[in-house]
Structures are given as structure tokens and as C-alpha cells.
């Protein structure tokens, strides 16, 4: 990558087109980074290939998928089902999941090899690290956590949340390659046919300085950003016992999660800013708005003690200390209906 790169505004060309002139070669095309877990692509991989395809269709040039990991060569060709023209595979023992520093080094070398105008990467824990360091290494603009991307007058324009999701910003990226990190579940993975030539790349990982000591994964649960349906419980649960919420989805056979922080530690509120978006705006069900169990289980379920609002009754019955009494008075006075005026 030479630093002398020029992006034209697209006026000289038929239609919007990014043309970074590098020496005598036009720099076009996109590279999409994939992420694998236990030897299989994560959903974000296909989302990022599809996003890259949409951009590549607009600006021209090949769509390259980058696959990094240990023992991933067999899986890599799956990227062509989403339209990848070329698949660069960095297969190295050091690149197994969790070796972030090695992945960053490999990613930089893959970008150098593909020489794209746009880099698309999933804004996951690993993706964010790779994107931020790539951006600094290449002196390239970066938009993190994008929920939409478009090409406007030859420039990549990304939509991304700011101020903790309170505002959506459209940001333009000037420079090459433009790095777009997409938020998981924000884009749709669209199946498309691609040539999918698999090409093995030898990466040099001699400069890796961070070593992985241990990896601990929560087993038996689907990761939050991979889940299709999210069921949440909050203060209405009356404590840390989430067994009721956990029991629901078993009937429905859908994945489940619960907040990582128990409500007692989250100041009695559901920890909304966990830093891990499930979707942009997740559909949620809250206990106890509904009664979720097949009739056949009645009357064995649910346990009778779970009458709502359980928090309030329990506090009243067992711990009428100064705080709970004042809370009760406060909540009652707030809930009192406004005075009725007689006409």
C-alpha cells in the first residue's frame, strides 16, 4: 500500500465509482472479513460478504472474502454462496479463535494482498480490534458499528449510531481503503453466486506479542448476537431467579439469553447498555404481560408464588425497612390516579 492514494469524486465516470489511483493501477473492489467459531462461519461473516457485495456492485471490482483461522480451508469455500469472487484463506495454527493479535497481523497482510478500495468487517469484539488497528496501520478512515452503508458520489457513506444509540449519524469516509465495520444483525445476508476461487495465503506472524492463556466460553447457550429471538426478564422477576424465563423458551424451542448483570447489581434496572447489541432494536417480551405455557402443563406450572408484582409484596412482607417503606410510599403516590374534576 503506498500512501499516495486519490479518490475521485466520480464526476469523470459513468455513475458513482470509487477510483483510487495508485501508481497506474485503479484500486477497486472490496474485501470482506469473515469470522469463524468452532470451524463454522458466524452469521456476521455472511452479512459482511453481502454488504461488501452491495458495495462492490456499486463501485466495481472483485469481491474478496478473507478467511482466517486454524483448519479453515475446507469451510472457506462456503463464502462463494454469498457472492465472493476470490477467497483468501490464511490457515495457520496461531490464528485459532481468540488469538487477536495474530488475527490483526494476518488481516493487515490479507488487505495488502487484496488491495481493495473498501474493507468490510463485522463489528464484533474481534472485528473491532482488527478494524481499529488496521485503520491506524493503513492510515485509513474507519466507521465502526455501522447499521447501513451506501455509496454516494463515489464516497462510502455509512450510517452509524452515536451517543449510545440515541442518534444516527451519516458519516462519509474519504481515503482508501475505507474500513466499514458492520453491526451484527443489522445487515441481511443475501445468497448470491460467486466464482469463489480459493487461494491460500501464507501469513507472517512473527510480530505477535499477545499470547492467549485461556479461553472460557459459556457452553450450551447461543451467543446473544447470533440469536434469532431474545427473551428478556427484568425487575418483574423479583430477584435473581431466572428459571421461569429459562423455562419458557424450552417450550418454544427458541434460543434464550438473560442479562449478564443481575438486576440487583444493575441498580434495579435492566442493563440496556451492555455493549452487546442483540439487534438494532430487538423485539422483546417482558414478564408478566403474557402467560406463555401450553395448557397441558396446567396446573403444574407456573408456581403460584409468582404473582405479580412479586417484588413489591415480598418487600412489604419481609423487609419493611426505611428504604422499602419509602419506596412503597413513593411508588403508591406516583401511581395514584389524577383527581377527577366534576363539571
Amino acid at each position: 500500500m503506498t500512501p499516495t492514494i486519490l479518490i475521485s469524486s466520480g464526476v469523470n465516470h459513468d455513475g458513482p465509482r470509487i477510483n483510487a489511483i495508485q501508481g497506474e493501477n485503479y484500486v477497486t473492489g472490496c474485501i470482506a472479513f469473515t469470522e469463524l467459531v468452532d470451524g463454522a462461519f458466524k452469521t456476521i461473516s455472511f452479512e459482511s460478504i453481502s454488504t461488501a457485495k452491495a458495495i462492490a456492485d456499486n463501485i466495481g471490482g472483485p469481491l474478496v472474502a478473507a478467511v482466517m483461522g486454524a483448519g479453515v480451508t475446507a469451510t472457506a469455500s462456503q463464502a462463494k454462496e454469498y457472492g465472493a469472487d476470490r477467497i483468501l484463506v490464511a490457515d495457520h495454527e496461531e490464528l485459532k479463535a481468540g488469538q487477536l493479535d495474530a488475527c490483526i497481523a494476518a488481516a493487515a497482510q490479507l488487505v495488502e494482498k487484496a488491495d481493495p478500495a473498501v474493507v468490510v468487517i463485522g463489528s464484533t469484539a474481534m472485528g473491532k480490534d482488527i478494524a481499529a488497528r488496521l485503520s491506524a496501520r493503513l492510515g485509513a478512515p474507519l466507521a465502526m458499528d455501522c447499521v447501513a452503508v451506501r455509496v454516494e458520489n463515489g464516497q462510502v457513506v455509512a450510517t452509524r449510531p452515536m451517543y449510545g444509540g440515541k442518534v444516527l449519524a451519516d458519516v462519509s469516509l474519504t481515503g482508501s481503503p475505507a474500513i466499514v465495520a458492520i453491526r451484527p444483525r443489522a445487515m441481511e445476508a443475501v445468497a448470491a453466486e460467486g466464482a469463489g476461487e480459493v487461494e491460500a495465503v501464507t501469513v507472517d506472524l512473527s510480530g505477535v506479542r499477545v499470547t492467549l492463556i485461556e479461553k472460557q466460553m459459556e457452553t450450551g447457550k447461543i451467543e446473544l448476537t447470533e440469536a434469532d429471538v431474545v427473551v428478556t426478564g427484568g425487575r418483574g422477576m423479583g430477584g435473581n431467579d431466572y428459571s421461569v424465563v429459562e423455562a419458557w423458551p424450552r417450550f418454544w424451542t427458541v434460543p434464550w439469553v438473560r442479562p449478564a448483570v443481575p438486576w440487583t447489581k444493575a441498580g434495579g434496572r435492566f442493563p440496556i447498555r451492555s455493549g452487546k447489541p442483540a439487534r438494532s432494536w430487538p423485539p422483546t417480551c417482558m414478564w408478566p404481560a403474557v402467560f406463555p405455557v401450553p395448557f397441558s402443563t396446567w396446573p403444574a406450572w407456573p408456581p403460584r408464588v409468582l404473582s405479580w408484582p412479586s417484588t413489591r409484596t415480598r418487600m412489604h412482607r419481609f423487609s419493611p425497612n426505611a428504604i422499602s417503606v419509602s419506596w412503597m410510599i413513593c411508588s403508591r403516590s406516583c401511581r395514584r390516579s389524577p383527581p377527577k374534576w366534576r363539571s
Binding site: 449510531p161 444516527l168 449519524a169 451519516d170 462519509s172 474519504t174
Partner: peptide, 20 residues
Amino acid sequence: PMVKILALRLPPERKRGRVI
């Protein structure tokens, strides 16, 4: 600066929950 903010807008309003 290579990243410029073109526009800011409010996100779409979250739909109200439904009580059955």
C-alpha cells in the same frame, strides 16, 4: 479528518409494547 459527519438524525422510534 477522513471521517466526516454528514447528517445526524434520530433513530426510528421503538414500537410500543403490546398488552394482551
